[in-house]
Amino acid sequence: MSTLSQRPRPRTRLSLRQGRRGLLYLALLGGGLIWLYPFLWALGSSLKSTDGFFSGGLNPIPSEFHWSNYSEAWTQADFSRFFVNTVLFATGTVIVTLLATSMAGYVLARTEFPGKKIWLGLVGVTLFLPHGYTIIPVFDLIQRLHLLNTLWSVVIVQSAGGMVFGTFLFMGYFTTIDRGLEDAARVDGANFHQIFWRIMLPLSGPMLATVGLFACINAWNSFFIPLVFTLSRPELHTLSVGMFNFIGQNSTAWTLVCAGSVITLLPIVLIFIVLQRFFINGLAGAVKQ
């Protein structure tokens, strides 16, 4: 590089470099198009007619627009119900996760109590244990609590899976908040609860967004947990489980399946694009710790 810059004829060098940069943009754009191709294809195919679907092959552009696929998927294939279930499930998971992890993160970061170190150690250990394989006792526990085949069971089990990650993020965040703030509030007569709910929690807006977004995306995409806990109750199925079942029962309605995919994928992709700052920051912070 440095030897190159000492050579004369700067103009050709510049255009060469510009050309190379242009190629790089072209490669990134082309790669991105290929990268997102499955989504574009699903979007296009969701508007095709059944014949057009088969003759269109890999071409994502429909010859005519069949918006009726969406209304059919929404009403006849029950995607409206799956959608409502998924929204309820995701909302419940976000609320439970935010409440439990912010409170735990606060007391672990800002108060001292006997057993704190032991608890932190235990929490750390669970991070390293593979717990994807413990679904059976969880199933048994939910059965004994008479929660099987309820939306509650899915919310609770899904939230429990996000406890450690969220608590650590909140813990890290609350340690950075100036202690003087708490002390001042205490001097003004605020008690423990007022300090947390009126001062600390409102201050943790960005972290609420990060942890909430993680919980929301994970819940929206969750497949295994809702599959296991609502297996025999189709009216409780979420979008991903409903889709899985729909294919099992209607192996030919492919345009409806594509419409269902778009109904499932589009909301969460939009939520991500709008709020990605919080998501990316959370990930980056977690790996750097």
Binding site: A100, M103, F113, V123, H131, T134, L141, I156, A160, F192
Partner: peptide, 27 residues
């Protein structure tokens, strides 16, 4: 003296113990 700390920790602790720690042993 730390009763509120325990109370605030409880929801997270219960969920983690019941659905992550206990299942490891129960299975």
């Amino acid at each position: 003296a730390a009763k509120w700390s325990y109370l605030y920790l409880a929801p997270m602790a219960v969920l983690l113990l019941a659905f992550v720690v206990y299942p490891i042993f129960a299975s």
